[in-house]
Computed example of a mutant assay.
Amino acid sequence: MRILLVEDDTSLGETILAWLRLDGHAADWVRRGDSAQTALMTHRYDCVLLDRGLPGLSGDALLAALRTAGNPVPVILITAFNALADRVEGLDLGADDYLVKPFELEELSARIRAAVRRGASRASNALHHAGIGLDLETRQASLHGAPVALTAREYSVLYALLLRKNGIVTRAQIEESLYGWGDEVESNAIEVYIHNLRKKFGSERIVTVRGLGYRLTQDEAS
């Protein structure tokens, strides 16, 4: 998943950013609300971690603008404001969740998974297609129930394919899910990850659509 972190505390921002990348996510970090607004206009994110007290544009104002514009991206407010009235106000503004500082990083990961799951209207923590399974809680992949070991990048590519299992996933969409700002994108990296997934799940399961991208084959007959 690609996550936008909006936090003006340098120490906390560095800690969360490192954790998100260790957890296998592509993550971008901005310190101002107006910078976050620009990022959200130019990139697609699976989740936003948003501080309320920000320079340039407050987190509350940014969240209100997102919801007024009809942007459904899951937003988790991360803030030191811990009064009941503060939490109610944040949720009423359109936040999907509210996490009070300080918090455990493992809990942050769980909150992200839950917010994204709700945003995608999924009732479970798993994605399935044509015998391929992906457990979003444990990050375990499987083929007909048998575990398949994946690297963090292979997991992200498979996640992108399964999210759009009935359509074509472009190279740009895969890169968006893999790389944050400043990450070096190797010219043949996507092809390497697709090649590795084909070796692990079967070459017939991922089809190259020339000039467009990749797609999963249709569900197997039951």
Rank of each mutant, 00 (worst) to 15 (best):
L4T: 06
L5I: 06
T10V: 12
T10H: 12
S11E: 12
S11F: 09
S11I: 15
G13W: 03
T15Y: 03
L17H: 15
W19L: 01
R21M: 06
W29N: 08
V30W: 05
G33W: 04
M41W: 06
D46I: 09
R52G: 05
R52E: 11
G53P: 00
G53K: 14
L54G: 08
G59S: 02
D60L: 06
L66G: 02
T68H: 14
T68C: 06
T68S: 12
A69L: 11
A69V: 04
P72H: 09
V73A: 02
V75Y: 00
A95D: 07
Y98V: 03
Y98H: 00
L99A: 03
L99F: 00
V100S: 05
P102F: 01
E104H: 12
E104Y: 08
E104L: 07
L105F: 03
E106Q: 13
E107A: 01
L108S: 04
S109L: 02
A110D: 10
I112S: 03
I112F: 05
A115P: 10
A115W: 00
R117D: 04
R117P: 08
R122G: 01
L127T: 00
H128K: 10
H129K: 12
G131R: 09
G131P: 06
I132E: 08
L134R: 06
E137V: 00
E137Q: 14
S142A: 15
P147Q: 04
A149T: 05
T151N: 12
E154R: 09
S156T: 11
S156L: 12
L158R: 05
L161N: 02
L161Y: 09
L161H: 09
L162M: 15
L162S: 08
L163C: 13
R171A: 02
A172V: 14
E175L: 10
E176C: 09
S177G: 07
G180A: 06
G180R: 11
G182Q: 05
V185Q: 11
S187P: 05
V192C: 08
V192S: 10
Y193I: 01
H195N: 02
N196Q: 14
G202R: 02
R205V: 00
V207R: 09
V207L: 13
V209H: 03
V209S: 06
L212W: 09
L212R: 15
G213H: 00
R215Q: 13
E220F: 06
A221D: 11
S222V: 13
